[in-house]
């Protein structure tokens, strides 16, 4: 009984995330379709990756015919944040978490699932985590399928409007903490400045979008770590 209710609690907590993912992955499906990636592969990407920024960069590389090393490096850098979340959650798992549960649950770590799981009081159980991950996972896959198949039925003006949705989500993740931390804002400024430099200065036009993100991130985060080291308390209140 207690275990079942933990699963149900997780399911309930996952509903708002799932609804959000449904709409965001819908726009991912539209984008993938506009890049000419077949339906089955687009759905496979969503069902095996479960990440917005990484998938968006990934289909950009596929579209541009980039190399596999570029793909691997891009995914590594863009998704490196999950390593921090995984590390943080590893301190919050209850006694039921054996290796199998760790291998399974870690697949479902996203920004939002991490945020909800880490806001729970005390440790989390495997059943809670499976419940929490399930609806966002279904929402992510279903939204991708709908966007890929039905996206072309939408009028162009609506597709244009939806094209900004994923970026809107990134802004929603970055702005609130940046508002409170001037040092974080400075690091964001470095990343944005470099990104614009690479995009607009002709000398750098040989750098692909994927590598541009890697370069901007490595330089900005290294500068941040050197100039503004984060003491444990700062990182913990995230």
């Amino acid at each position: 009984m207690a275990s079942d209710s933990k699963f149900l609690t997780g399911l309930r907590d996952g509903i708002p995330i799932g609804l959000g993912y449904l709409s965001v992955s819908f726009t991912f499906g539209i984008m993938a379709a506009s890049y000419g990636i077949p339906f089955g592969y687009t759905l496979l990407i969503s069902m095996t990756n479960l990440t917005s920024a990484g998938q968006l960069a990934g289909i950009g590389i596929i579209h541009a015919g980039g190399g596999l090393a570029e793909m691997a490096l891009t995914q590594l850098v863009i998704n490196l944040r999950y390593a921090l979340m995984s590390l943080s959650l590893s301190q919050k798992l209850d006694g039921e978490f054996n290796l199998f549960h760790r291998l399974a649950v870690s697949f479902g770590i996203t920004d939002e699932i991490f945020a909800v799981a880490s806001s729970q009081k005390g440790d989390v159980s495997p059943r809670y985590m499976y419940g929490l991950i399930m609806i966002p996972y279904i929402g992510w896959a279903a939204g991708t399928a709908l966007g890929t198949l039905a996206g072309n039925l939408l009028p162009e003006i609506l597709r244009n409007a939806l094209g900004i949705a994923l970026y809107g989500m990134f802004i929603a993740i970055v702005v609130p903490p940046a508002k409170k931390r001037p040092k974080l804002l400075a690091v964001i400024g470095i990343a944005v400045g470099l990104s614009c430099l690479i995009r607009f200065v002709p000398v750098f036009s040989f750098i692909s979008d994927g590598f541009s993100i890697i370069i901007c991130t490595l330089i900005a985060a290294t500068a941040g770590a050197l100039l503004f080291p984060v003491v444990t308390e700062d990182a913990d209140d995230e």
Partner: peptide, 8 residues
């Protein structure tokens, strides 16, 4: 690691 997600 703390700065990576925001930079990305």
């Amino acid at each position: 690691i703390y700065y990576v997600p925001y930079a990305v």
